[in-house]
Amino acid sequence: MRDAQLLLPDFSLILVGYLLCRFTALDRPVWQAVERLVYFFLFPVFLFQSIVRTPLDLHAASALIGAGLALMVCGIALAWSLPWLPGLRRVIDVREHAASAQIAFRFNSFIGLAMAERVLGAPGQQLVAVLVGVSVPLANVAAVWPMARHGQRSFAAEVVRNPLIIATAAGLVANLAGLAPPDWLQTTLGRIGGSSIALGLLTAGAGMQLASLARGKALGTGVLAIRHALQPLAAWLLARAFGLGAAETTALLIFSALPTSSSCYVLAARMGYNGAFVAGLVTLSTVLGLASLSGALQLAGAR
């Protein structure tokens, strides 16, 4: 019950977004514009500020960073291997797999940062911000590469134009160089970035659609099982292997159990793939996230 109460505020925003999109004049075209605003401006600002605002001690955070990167590599390897597993090669379309593999290892940062603050307070949000910061470049590169390869598009061009990679790189460089925005700009950046969480959760709800999931059941089951079952288990094992403390373990488990990124279908559609199918997987992942996050918090408590 306690875990459900912790999750309810953020998932309530997702439900509100769904209801607004389906039953009011704020229909899908409105939310597509909001989604672009969040993806290209609001969330990059939030990500940059989250990384810059607290001095990053790479030595002190090295175990958490190592565990986070190992978790990402695990998810990517499992996702990419799906078509070559026994019995799946004949039933998984390689082009659909190129667009859908990202579901298994990308993550909804809005929910992660909101959840971390609710469970662990501001220090926990900073721990998840570190995980997001070091994982975003790897996750986006791994998402873009198979689609660029199958779609014969420029991989380098897609990566360097990604706003999340740009914001993360800028934030890490500024942090390590000891640079920070002036005080008069901090409040403005805080308000811009803070709005990204609420709007990001609302757009996740507005983008939910399940009708396209009738096809590709094996592929969908595979990537969602990795995202919501295997990733939390891997995180629990990695927390023990890296000797993480209680707060770091909880942050890693929250990070591992998040629903996939709501921008997965934006990227797939922009690169010429079946965005509707990916959107259906994002929807189902958002629903499953309630169970996986609750399970992850229980694992964290049982450590």
Rank of each mutant, 00 (worst) to 15 (best):
R191M: 15
P182E: 12
T187Y: 10
D183A: 15
T187L: 14
A198G: 12
G200P: 00
T187E: 13
L189P: 02
G194T: 08
A204L: 15
I197T: 10
G178Y: 08
L176A: 12
G200H: 07
G193T: 03
G205I: 00
L199C: 04
I192T: 13
R191N: 14
A177M: 09
G194S: 11
G190A: 14
P181K: 07
W184R: 04
I192L: 15
P182C: 14
T203G: 02
A198N: 04
W184G: 00
L185C: 07
A174Q: 10
V173L: 14
T187V: 11
N175H: 10
L189V: 03
G200C: 06
S195H: 06
G194P: 07
T187W: 12
L176H: 12
V173C: 07
L179R: 14
A177K: 07
L202V: 05
P181S: 10
A198V: 08
A174K: 07
P182L: 13
W184C: 06
A177T: 06
G193D: 05
S196C: 10
G205H: 01
T203P: 01
A204R: 00
V173M: 10
R191V: 09
T188G: 15
A198T: 05
G205Q: 04
D183R: 13
P181Y: 08
A204C: 12
T203H: 05
G200Y: 00
G205T: 03
A174N: 12
G178D: 10
P182I: 11
L199T: 06
I192Q: 11
G200L: 01
L202G: 01
